[in-house]
Amino acid sequence: MGEVSKFFTIQKCDNKSHRVLCKECARETLHSIVSSYLESGSDDCGGGNTIDWHCDNQIIQCLGCETVSFRTISTCSEDTEYDHYGPCHPETIKYYPGRAEGLRSIESYLLPFTIQQIYKETILSIENEQYVLAGIGIRAIIETICKDLEADGRNLYQKIDSLVGKSIVTPEGARFLHKLRVLGNEAAHEVKAHNSMQLELAMQIIEHMLDGTYVIPARVKSVF
């Protein structure tokens, strides 16, 4: 077994601001690095081959809402890409709690509890890159909405179409929901992981429906 060497240093705030996606603000905001734990090491694989790695573990704070979160920025000599200047080692950035740039936060407390529950779990799946579960969750949201609205039909295909007759969605909206139904079927039956862009767009379609069906009517009722 080859030798392993490891080093670490601890740094305080760097007195600089960094543009980072904030989960609470739902957009990019300026953050400060409160503290940083730097790790680096080298693994001897034998035969003169070594793997070098580096990881910067950061406590970061939004300068707007002041929310504190955690970020890691890591590189590894095994991960190699090529650009105009030759080989380079790309950074892998992860956030805790997770976040996704294309998602926004609707007033989920105005949703029926069952819809609220599956909506929150699906958002968490996308933010934490659990894309198969997110696809299944998107289909489950549509099924739960149809059940809550007492949609007619023996299967989800028929229930989505019945929402048009109830004037809940437009024919174009129903076509979008059928695309999401297929996406969910592929995730559930073929274990297909759709990419983050597809899933975020799917959630935007669902959120538009939730806004019109539940959130806005609830807000109008409370205000007027």
Rank of each mutant, 00 (worst) to 15 (best):
S5K: 15
F8Y: 15
D14A: 04
D14G: 06
V20W: 10
R27V: 02
E28N: 09
E28S: 02
T29Q: 13
S40N: 12
N49T: 12
D52A: 02
Q58A: 00
I59V: 11
C62P: 03
L63D: 12
C65Y: 05
T67A: 11
V68G: 01
F70I: 06
T72A: 11
T80G: 01
Y82W: 13
H84V: 07
G86I: 03
P87I: 05
H89S: 05
E91F: 14
K94L: 15
K94G: 00
F113Q: 13
F113R: 12
F113P: 01
Q116R: 15
T122L: 07
I126K: 10
I126V: 14
I126N: 05
Y131I: 01
Y131M: 14
A134G: 07
G137N: 04
I138D: 01
R139K: 10
T144Q: 06
K147E: 12
A151Y: 12
R154I: 09
I160T: 12
I168G: 02
V169W: 03
T170G: 07
G173Q: 08
R175E: 15
R175C: 06
F176P: 00
K179A: 11
G184S: 06
N185R: 07
A188F: 08
A193E: 10
S196E: 15
E200V: 03
E207D: 15
G212H: 14
T213M: 13
Y214E: 05
Y214F: 14
V223M: 10
